[in-house]
Structure formats: C-alpha cells, structure tokens
Design a protein around this nucleic acid. Structure first.
Lengths: 189, 189
DNA sequence: ATCACTTTTTGCCAAATGACAAATTATTTT
DNA sequence: AAAATAATTTGTCATTTGGCAAAAAGTGAT
C-alpha cells in the first residue's frame, strides 16, 4: 500500500486524512498467472495498482491472432480506462502473466474517492497523461525499425521483463513472429 | 476563429466574455509550404489551432534520416507540447507541408488566458488527452501490420491527406521506404 | 515549348521476415 | 525418473522489404 500512496504523492499533495480515506477503500487482489484482471466483452469494474507481477493487455485481431498491445508492471496503474470510465464493454483482455498482487478499488468506491478528495482527479489526470505519453514513446519506437532494433529497444524499456514473460508475448508485442524473434535473439547474443 | 471556439466548446463551457477574451488574444499566422511552425533545438513559443493546411512533425534519427512522426490537419491543435510547457528545446520540427492558416497565441498570452479563465485548463487537458489517445490508436495500427495494411489504414485515418502530401512523407510516417510504398500503391490500385 | 528541378516509379539484387512443420529444449505432473 | 505438456529453436521456402541507381512522370519558371 505504501507504494501506491507514494506513487500518488508524486503527482500532487494529499493530507493524512485523505490518504487514510484512500487506504480504507482499498483492497488487495491476488491473481494467479494467466488469470484475468478484466476481460473483453465485459465492463471493467476495477481500478488497480500493481504491487507485484506483470499484466499484459491483449486482443484478438481479425484473423483471430492474439496480439499483445502492451505490458504493465510493478508500481503502475492498471485499468481498462475506456471501459471503466464510460461503462462500456471492453475490447481487450488484461491478463496476469505472472502471479500478481494488485491494490484495487471498486468503481463505486473509486468514484466516491474522486468526489470526496479535492485534487485527486487532478492527480489521476496527470497519471493518465503520463501513461499515455509513455505509450506513445514506446509505440513510436516500434514503428519504422526492423525487428532487431525493436527488440533492443524493448529490452531497454522493459529491462526487467524480458526474462519473465513468454517469448510469444514479446513477439506479438513487437509485431513480429515468434520464430523471427527467436532468430533475432540468436544473432544478438 | 469560429472553428476554434466551437472546437473548445466541445470540451467544456465558456461564456461570451471568456470567448471574447480568447479572441482578443488570438492572432492569425500564415505559413507557406515548407515553413516551420517550430523547430528542433528551439523552445516552442506558440500554441496554435490549424484552420487551413497540414503540418507534419518530424525529426532526424541517428542515421540522419528524416522521420515523420505524424500529421496534423485542419481543426486540430498544433503545439510542441513538451517544449512549450516546460520551456525546453524541442527535438522535433513542426513543418507546414501546405500553405497554412493557424490561429496562434503567444506563450505569455496563453498562460494569461489559462490563469484568467476558470475551466480553460480543464478543457485543454481534455483536448490533450484525446489527442494522445488518437496518437496511440494510430501508432498501434502501424505496429504489427505489413506495409499494405499500414497504408490502407493510413488512408482511412487521413482520407483527405493522401493526395495533398508528398509520398516520401507518407512513407517515413509508415516506417517503410518510398520505393516500397510506391510498389504497394501499384498493387492496390 | 523548353529547360531545370522535384517527385514517383522501376529494375535489380540482397537481406529480412513470414508461414508452416519438425525438432529440440524446458517445465510440470505423476 | 519418466511421461506429458509447453516453450523455444531450427529448417525450408515463399514473400516482403530495403538499398541503390536509373528511368519516367510531374511541376514550375522562363
């Protein structure tokens, strides 16, 4: 929990009373490897913060292939934002790809917090923008580069992820086939 | 000008007095084809809204190749945000790739407006988030697809741009070479 | 209409990647 | 340890794309 509070405080101030309020509403969710935090077709009902583990966001394209959009690891917000905010069914799966511990808030509690704590929505907005910006930077690195360069920059961006997740997920994130990635790795090491 | 006001009002309310204040500070900037709205190495000093024309955002990569990050067309905000907000030198060029008319605000005026008009910063924040989200969606389409698919989705996203800008810019945006794009087009049409 | 210049298309070959299947290696279960 | 399962690597060949240079088409000025 401490991590989450510290994380929030990076983006704005909260007094002890406000912090306590947040703590009171928080619950811990444990997910086993391969379990879902939220699923395509369903409305996202939780706002979370990962304290342990890795989540990946994926969907199925026209051809039925599983595509990994991105990864979220420790000390980051995890929420299917569009679905959560607008109460619409999501088009993506948020799946644990290792055992995870996540601090979660129900939608009701979270909205209550946003309404009660002045400045919290400001903090959240900043967090969201920052996350989006990071996403843009990451995606940019994936365009225009060849497989090898993509893989190298992936390793820079997620240095502590490479060895914790299956190769196939990395490949679908990088937009190349698993075999290609395997060959690329052979050439690098 | 009307377009800009309408644009802002999509994201929040402003009364007539506030609108007049904004109008009073606005200036019209005309850029000829190939001129720069802001340049790499310099601090961005203007916040703009394109009423006519197309701007592209580009930079030079390690190899000295010119890379197009994205295009901005009519009825969209144009600003080198990171540089403008933090007063740091930018790493990108914002270049007119057709004659442009842009409504602009100096940094000083814009900050004054943000301080004076309650709710404007909220509106701006919403605009920025939306733009970032669009960027993510666009970039996602560029990863994982082959050249042909990229080009097709580019045409969907910028239907009125394809015939107005040089092929080489489109190619560098799509992350493929100009020759490849030329061949791809031949196969499609 | 001609010339100069820019943009786009082609041709050629090398390199990278995809598709599919089989083999190998790791991991888990019994 | 052996068997079963999953993950990764490798082989083979077709396709796509890159790199480079030349040709063709388009544009603008005189």
């Amino acid at each position: 929990m401490k991590e989450f509070v510290e994380y929030l405080l990076q983006f704005g101030n909260l007094n002890q009373q406000q912090i306590d309020l947040i703590l009171k509403k928080s619950k811990e969710l444990k997910l086993k490897n391969n379990e879902y935090f939220s699923e395509a077709g369903k409305v996202a009902k939780q706002f979370g913060f990962i304290t342990e583990g890795i989540i990946r966001v994926c969907y199925y394209n026209d051809k039925g292939e599983e595509m990994t959009k991105y990864f979220i690891d420790e000390n980051n917000i995890v929420v299917d934002l569009n679905s959560f905010d607008n109460s619409i069914p999501s088009s993506a799966y948020l799946q644990a790809i290792s055992d995870c511990k996540i601090i979660v808030f129900s939608k009701k509690d979270w909205e209550e917090l946003l309404n009660t704590i002045i400045g919290l929505d400001n903090i959240v907005r900043k967090i969201i923008s920052k996350a989006l910006l990071r996403k843009v930077v990451r995606l940019s690195a994936l365009v225009s580069d060849d497989g090898t360069t993509r893989y190298l920059s992936f390793m820079e961006q997620y240095p502590n992820l490479v060895n914790r997740i299956p190769l196939s997920y990395v490949a679908s994130y990088l937009g190349i086939t698993q075999s290609s990635l395997s060959r690329i790795r052979k050439n690098i090491c």
